Simulated assay, not measured.
Amino acid sequence: MKKNLISAILMASFLAGCVGGVAQLPATSRTASVTGGFVDETLSDEQNQTISEVSVGTVAYVTGIDADRGQMVASVGISGTPTVGAARTTGSGTYSTTYSYGVIDGITRTSSRISGYRGGESGTMTLFADFDTGILQGSSSELTVDGGVAGSTVSGIVTANYSYPGASGSLSGTLNGQIGATGIIATFHGHDENTVMAGGLVGTSP
């Protein structure tokens, strides 16, 4: 994804120093509900994206600016009810997945403006799930999954390694989702003081 400078003039509520509305950090990430294939967020300069597998489901994510709170935002959610098959409690399996995520890096905030550089990565990755030990692992050059499985629930940590013109880095985030005999779907997101990231992965088991 090509680098894109995004910026916004902060709203009057921020400039006036309204304590209840001003965010301490200029960056945040979160999960949210999804309606009609779009994350339920109202942001300036939104960039909405989805990643899906027709037999499993869809993850939607968005990056943009909350000018009222003076923050760059990355938000993600799962659309509807995914289909991952019956829960597995023993044995192991591999899942062929596709992943995608968006990043805003180099975030700076002054008294009147917030800006950052937007990019992202996408690709494919094989995940290995050991249902006896509860381990879920996999990696590519752009994403590493160090997670766990408990019944049909996926959790853990991802590390996003991104590089696009003018910005590169690594950021960890929280992984959450569902897994079953036939599929896997999960969201992930994370942030620090000057970077936000959100995305997802979805795939099938042969």
Rank of each mutant, 00 (worst) to 15 (best):
S13R: 04
T110F: 02
N194L: 02
G36N: 14
F38V: 14
K2F: 03
T98H: 08
R118A: 10
L201D: 04
I107W: 04
A129R: 12
T90S: 08
S170H: 05
E193S: 14
G138C: 01
A129V: 09
G200W: 00
G166T: 11
G116N: 02
S168Q: 13
G123W: 09
T108W: 07
T98A: 08
Y164E: 03
I185F: 05
G85K: 09
L15Q: 15
L25G: 00
A86V: 13
S170L: 04
A12L: 07
L43H: 09
S122T: 14
E41N: 03
L15V: 10
P82E: 10
T108G: 01
E46L: 08
V103K: 06
T153N: 08
V73M: 10
I135R: 13
M125P: 07
V196N: 04
V196P: 07
A150D: 15
G156P: 08
T153E: 11
A186Y: 03
L10I: 01
I185Q: 01
G37L: 12
T35M: 09
V196M: 03
C18M: 10
A150I: 09
L25I: 07
V62G: 09
L136Q: 07
S122D: 13
A67K: 06
V39R: 11
S139R: 12
E53M: 07
Q178G: 01
A181I: 00
L15I: 12
M72C: 11
S112R: 04
T174F: 06
V76C: 01
S33R: 07
G183S: 14
A74V: 00
T124N: 15
G102A: 15
M197S: 00
A74M: 02
I157W: 04
T133L: 12
